[in-house]
Write a protein that binds this DNA or RNA. Structure first.
Lengths: 191, 191
DNA sequence: CCTACCGATCGGTAGG
DNA sequence: CCTACCGATCGGTAGG
């Protein structure tokens, strides 16, 4: 039962993959149709438009990240442990849902208004929440004193290479890579 | 004299900026023409084709990075200091030539063959040279023992946010940001 | 450097 | 789910 994917699901997954590999503007509906064994016109029996695909993928991921942020924020972990938990989240998303995370990081800029502004707001909310944890960690003396915004952007960027480079299923032991990466980042953070 | 830019230079600079902001496929020749106060057809008196722009920008930057890598490699700095010097290079490129570095990082994938393969080779050469310095630093005990490839990719990615986020001339003191970022990365590296 | 224009491809619709 | 087709836009050329 769970193994059966609706055509709509197949289209969304193929779109997320193509957007990641070629970017949204370079992905044509004809190419997408080919990827799911349809003619371009038949796609529109399952979806509304090309931008609907991008929009749904972007906002789905945004909400996923925000939900996790909220959970972590409200937990009773130490500030440094909260940062570690968020790093873990990004790395897990990067390795397990690598088809759609670039949407959250890159492709959203191709949204049109008013969705673009909505999305930018969600991203700002996410950054603000993450930033707050870092700031509290610095105040509590758990995290190296530094410009929190620089730390945040560096963390977020550093975690992006997993999507960029792990594309083909290179069988480098993902878990060990994740551990090394998390270790490197945390070493940079602690005093 | 040096203040006068040829129309060709203006076109290349506007193209680099548009490719960074909208991506190569989403940048139209009509839009580019508008940016330099021409009609689209007039662009072709100065340039060969749209892909010529991308190709020249990509390879120019690739050679810049490779030249610096060679200089640093052949210097008599310690291994850790070499890594620091390369980090400095990336950060300087990011802040001073921010119009064209995304080409080196992202837009090259829109090149067609045989240029695509040529470019990928140059990138591999760069990564290999950088990797070698990291490996030697680990062997010499100057750098924390870890998977060198993970360290390399994390470093390269971490330095990308400067292009991504500093877009509008946000007047955050660039030098201090660079220093904090370099500090964060080096803290993660040293034992 | 422009006007006028080319064939190709784009996202999407009509109608069955 | 397809064939047939739409207007718009693309990169680029001809000719002056």
């Amino acid at each position: 039962m769970t193994a059966i994917k609706t055509k709509k699901q197949q289209i969304y997954e193929a779109a997320a993959r193509l957007f990641r590999d070629k970017g949204y503007p370079a992905t044509s509906m004809r190419h997408l149709a080919e990827a799911v064994d349809l003619k371009a016109s038949s796609l529109y029996n399952h979806i509304g438009s090309k931008e609907d695909l991008l929009r749904d993928i972007c906002f789905e991921n945004a909400h996923k990240f925000l939900t996790h942020l909220k959970t972590v924020s409200e937990s009773d972990l130490s500030h440094l442990e909260k940062v570690k938990a968020l790093i873990e989240l990004h790395l897990t998303m990067a390795t397990e849902e690598l088809t759609s995370v670039t949407a959250f990081n890159d492709e959203w800029r191709h949204l049109s208004e008013p969705w673009l502004s909505d999305f930018v707001q969600l991203r700002k909310d996410y950054e603000k929440g993450f930033l707050k944890i870092i700031q509290e960690g610095i105040q509590a003396g758990e995290i190296q004193a530094a410009d929190p915004q620089t730390l945040l952007y560096t963390l977020l960027s550093a975690m992006r290479w997993l999507y960029d480079w792990v594309k083909p299923d290179k069988p480098m032991a993902t878990d060990s890579v994740k551990q090394e990466l998390a270790g490197f980042l945390v070493r940079g953070l602690v005093k």
